[in-house]
Computed example of a mutant assay.
Amino acid sequence: MDAGTIEIVAALICNEKGRVLLVRKRGTTAFMQPGGKREAGENDLAALSREIAEELGCAVVRSSIRPLGKFDAVAANEPGFRVRACLYEVDVTGAIAPSQEIDETIWIDPGAPPDIPLAPLTRDHVLPLAAMRRPGEATS
């Protein structure tokens, strides 16, 4: 890992209408993907499952996990740092409720995000990717 780079795992969670779930951590202003740092000995999927359970109170559907790639961006909450995120598209089961360090959750249209502060990773990489992947003709 490079000095000044924070390695994380992040989740792209979309609902049936193609909206993307974002979270805002306590004491911060930027909305971002759920996820976080790996703990010692954790692989990406274990870390992602733990972070989703801790932050949102729901569970990752293991059969739904799809790797989307690695992305680099300026860190939203750590001045002078960058994040390197392994991004996964996942489905979740159970009620989504912010907990632990999460103050707020929001569902947004990735092709027309509202005027809210967005983490650089979310703004520059995740939302454009989600906008290209979302269902074109939702039937629900």
Score class of each variant (00 low, 15 high):
S49F: 06
S49L: 10
S49A: 15
S49K: 15
R50A: 12
R50Q: 10
R50S: 11
I52N: 07
I52S: 02
I52K: 07
A53R: 14
A53F: 09
A53M: 08
A53E: 12
E54R: 10
E54L: 08
E54M: 09
E54P: 01
E54H: 10
E54Y: 08
E55M: 04
G57D: 06
G57R: 11
C58M: 01
C58V: 01
C58I: 03
V61T: 12
V61D: 12
R62N: 03
R62A: 10
R62Y: 05
R62W: 04
S63P: 12
I65A: 09
I65G: 03
I65Q: 05
I65N: 02
R66I: 08
P67D: 01
L68W: 06
G69A: 01
K70V: 10
K70W: 09
D72I: 09
D72W: 11
D72P: 03
D72G: 08
D72R: 15
A73Y: 08
A73D: 15
V74W: 08
V74Y: 07
V74P: 05
A75F: 07
A75L: 08
A76Y: 12
A76E: 09
N77H: 15
N77D: 15
E78K: 14
E78L: 09
P79T: 04
G80K: 06
G80R: 07
F81G: 03
R82D: 00
R82V: 00
R82T: 02
V83R: 11
V83T: 13
V83D: 15
A85K: 07
C86G: 09
C86H: 13
C86K: 14
C86Q: 14
L87C: 05
L87F: 05
L87A: 14
